[in-house]
Amino acid sequence: MYEIIAEISRWAIPLTLLLVPLAAVLRGVPVFEAFVEGAGEGFATAIKTIPYLVAMLVAISVFRASGAMELMVQTLSPALNLIGFPAEVLPHAIMRPLSGGAALGIATDLIATHGPDSFIGQLVSTMQGSTDTTFYVLTLYFGSVGISRYRYAIISGLAADLTTLAASVFIVQKVFGAGG
């Protein structure tokens, strides 16, 4: 199963690159011209995201560097320990929706310290793979079309993140056991 999916992932883009232009030619599309015309919008789309990303990444960067995140972790960890959530993993849980790179750094560090097959190692691996960088994605996607009023998008995104977190703790305990 694993190999099949990995193989599909490897072939997906080369095949797209082969079949899409072929299909376009068969429909009589001037492929080179059409490609250039589409690609021409790439610059504007990317540039448009700058102010939104600057706003969000400045807040995230300041939050991390100031020690505010550390303080939040210290305040929350006793309560979380009570429900069987290891405090070591909390910085990752807080960072995951904000910055993919920073969360991956924390996960790598935890795996190196506790070992990949320890409870904490399995838990942080599951957490890293099961959710996306909610704030970054919202900022980037909305920013690219000039939307600054997100309505309830953050609520659904964070509700999903919290659920994923709880589900990760639950399933890793069930599958790998809380010990180790």
Binding site: P21, F35, E37
Partner: peptide
């Protein structure tokens, strides 16, 4: 991050234009 996106966005917008034109 935004500048790094220029290349991949331009590339995929090009492919998507073809995909759209081909139906």
């Amino acid at each position: 991050t935004s500048l790094n996106l220029i290349a991949i966005i331009a590339f995929w917008l090009g492919i998507m234009r073809l995909a759209e034109a081909a139906g």
